[in-house]
Design a protein around this nucleic acid. Structure first.
Length: 111
DNA sequence: CCTGTGACATAAG
DNA sequence: CCTTATGCCACAG
């Protein structure tokens, strides 16, 4: 895609939409893929803006530990967990199970 | 230009 | 395992 360098937000949004169903990814992984490994916070912040968009599976994006840190930004307390569970992702206590199995790294999968 | 901010990441105790 | 501290970086005002 020879698209111009859209804002980090736009890029993060594109990557988030590319996350396969039933998989999860970390902010750092996305940030790294975008070329800014240390701007993981920006990814999360960007996600917050994308929450308004329905096509953005932000619930598939979690922190390094597979913890649903951002669930509080969703509508309900367990909305994020529900969405993930609906996709086949087992989540317990806000933490994703079999994380290593469903992990999805853009730098690898999209390589 | 400067300041604030944020759903992280990593290190240290 | 937990909390605290620091870095980090892009964007908004």
């Amino acid at each position: 895609m020879s698209k111009k360098e859209a804002s980090f937000f736009e890029d993060a949004k594109s990557v988030a939409k590319l996350i396969p169903k039933g998989r999860v990814c970390s902010y750092g992984a996305i940030a790294k893929y975008l070329g800014a490994a240390r701007s993981a916070r920006m990814v999360g912040w960007a996600m917050n803006s994308f929450l308004a968009e329905e096509n953005i599976p932000a619930h598939r994006v979690v922190n390094r530990k597979g913890l649903l840190t951002g669930k509080k930004h969703f509508e309900g307390e367990n909305k994020m967990e529900q969405l993930l569970a609906s996709e086949g992702v087992e989540v317990i206590d806000n933490q994703i199970q079999n994380l290593e199995e469903i992990w999805w790294d853009p730098s690898i999968e999209l390589l």
